[in-house]
Design a protein around this nucleic acid. Structure first.
Lengths: 354, 354
DNA sequence: GAGCCAAACTATACCGGTTTAGTCGTCCCC
DNA sequence: GGGGACGACTAAACCGGTATAGTTTGGCTC
């Protein structure tokens, strides 16, 4: 079987130089319409496909984007966020002939190495920054590596700056962000629970070093205060169902256990319901439970789980689009997605009367 | 800031030709020990890293492996198999300086395109074939594209051939396979349920076109027959919690509903428990439920779910190793992993007495 | 009709590696 | 001491594109 057809084959068949073929294919000026058409015809006929590696070498572009996930494999499996996010990214990339290079790392040290390797190998043209952390070290790292990136959420914690007098004074972050305001849904949830008469409420959040954990914590506590409720009991976890279950156990062991528990993701909420049932508590009659992300399973457990719907798929799509634009034009605006909304289901109900 | 150091820089600094540097770095014969050491020293000092794209171009190797997942994003999120599998693959690849290129596609037509594109762009050096189908069209496709691959499970359905007289006569499959015998766990499960006195048993399986679905179906039915039980009621689903729930509903509506339901994955099992509870049925007192894969959540719902533990992480590791070996040496043996084992938990119990 | 300019096209130098053909020197052997 | 073999190394071709400098062609101007 013959070799793959190269640009030289096309040039020879069309009777022109290979430089001109390159021009025609990347439709750049300097090619007469007739010639261009002829070249394109020949290329199609020979089923010519430019070699990615040759192109990468001369353009210093890899036509791929990178995603490094720094979570324990175990958690990754339980949390539906990333698969959906990836699917959204893919939807955009595959249409553009680009690929997604994925890396899953356990520890932070290894994480740095992967970012460095991706950059120095020029394996990707840009990266997605998820699970943003406070003063995220990856931002200066990527900046020093000259690697374009897009962040999921605003690395400057604009919500905090908003309260301060000098909003304009905040540090401009170097990368465009795609923001999905999760606090909106959390606030709705706080009002929902307060409205149901709950006063002793617990908030089981993800790792504090991740911005979304503290951001939601602040939003939830703030909204409860506004509604005249006491501050929630906050428990930090690593997002695993195991820690969600453990946290629930500890909360229910308190002298005055909460009447409602809000979890940072759905798997933890489902595990929480499991613990409650194990102890013979009725949900929501004796304990209300809510989750986050609104995964498929939330609808199908018993009772179905009240959750805050963030849309990882759309988030992925938009992040991919933003990153591609940044790479192509050198600049890209921040994008604000529709805020997360509360989805009320059967796991939340009126607070039990004492 | 200066350009990246290239092989020419190293050659100049070491006072040799760049060809020799290449030899030294890929430790090939024809370089004197002294010179080799000197070159390596210089390379280290200059922090030289070969350009991936340049190397790709001249060696026709991309140093990346590909995984195409043909599942609906929604299902992907619910099923923890892939994230764990990917984490396992990554563990091996990152140590080898290779990357994983991922693609998530919804429909089959698009699937073909992605395989073709990966091949014609030479974006990957080999591919993982998961969710093997009967007479899987991807095998001849990849073969015709000259793309190395490794299959998860045996595409020849050896378990069927085993029964036939002429075992040697079966078609030799072109790709090495990494087999994790899931039937062992399914058989254990059948005996477990039969031993508990269950007679009316349902099996909610995944899509029939996937080999593992029919394989497990056959194994389960066979083991039940052996144990003197009637044939199970089989329901085909798409692996979503939604269809798992729907199937459960239909089964419980039967005039003689099953006393035990076995599901093809854990999310469906959890959804099944949800439906049972919704109808006021006690699990396992009135209905026993079992899942598959033994995901984290299975341990933490109420009641905890009896499941068959397949080990996606190990599967991913081994598949990566096998594929790398195939690519490097041109041949690789099939690998047999420890079989899946039953994990008994609280969701299965004695059959209710009529 | 000489002079000029732009458009269309060619030739060639890259990109940064690998690989092959060829050069040089040294040791060995008869 | 001449010839062959071998080890160490260099020069240059090559992978398949893109980018740039240079050449041809045709039309327009005065």
């Amino acid at each position: 079987m013959g070799r793959k057809t190269t640009i030289t084959d096309v040039a020879r068949a069309a009777g022109v130089s290979k430089g001109l073929v390159s021009f025609a294919l990347n439709d750049r000026p300097g090619v007469s319409p007739d010639t261009r058409d002829r070249i394109l015809d020949v290329a199609r006929e020979l089923d010519y496909r430019p070699s990615l590696s040759a192109r990468s070498l001369s353009t210093r572009t890899s036509y791929a984007l990178g995603l490094v996930i720094a979570r324990d494999p175990e958690i990754l499996g339980a949390d539906p966020f990333f698969p959906s996010f990836i699917a959204g990214v893919e939807r955009v990339l595959s249409a553009e002939g680009r690929a997604l290079v994925l890396s899953v790392v356990g520890d932070d040290a290894h994480e740095q190495t992967v970012y460095r390797t991706f950059a120095s190998d020029a394996r990707v043209d840009g990266m997605f920054l998820t699970d943003l952390r406070h003063d995220d070290p990856r931002i200066p790292l990527l900046q020093s590596l000259g690697m374009p990136a897009v962040t999921l959420g605003d690395p400057d914690a604009r919500h905090a700056a908003r309260a301060s007098a000098d909003d304009a004074g905040r540090t401009a972050h170097p990368y465009p962000s795609v923001v999905l305001d999760d606090t909106a849904g959390v606030v709705e949830l706080a009002h929902h629970l307060a409205g149901l008469g709950h006063r002793r409420i617990a908030h089981v959040i993800g790792p504090r070093r991740m911005m979304h954990a503290t951001r939601r914590d602040a939003a939830f506590a703030g909204a409860l205060a506004e509604a005249g409720c006491p501050a929630p009991i906050v428990v930090e976890t690593d997002f695993t169902a195991a820690e969600g279950a453990a946290a629930t156990g500890r909360l229910l062991d308190l002298a005055e256990p909460p009447t409602a528990i809000v979890f940072g993701n759905d798997p933890m909420a489902i595990a929480g319901i499991g613990i409650a049932h194990e102890r013979g508590l009725q949900v929501p009659r004796e304990l209300s439970v809510a989750g986050f992300d609104d995964s498929e399973l939330a609808r199908y457990v018993f009772p179905s789980v009240t959750s805050v719907r963030s849309d990882p798929l759309v988030w992925g799509e938009q992040a991919a689009r933003t990153l591609l634009q940044l790479i192509a034009t050198g600049a890209s605006d921040d994008v604000e997605l529709p805020p997360a909304r509360l989805v009320t289901r059967a796991s939340t109900g009126p607070a039990p009367t004492p």
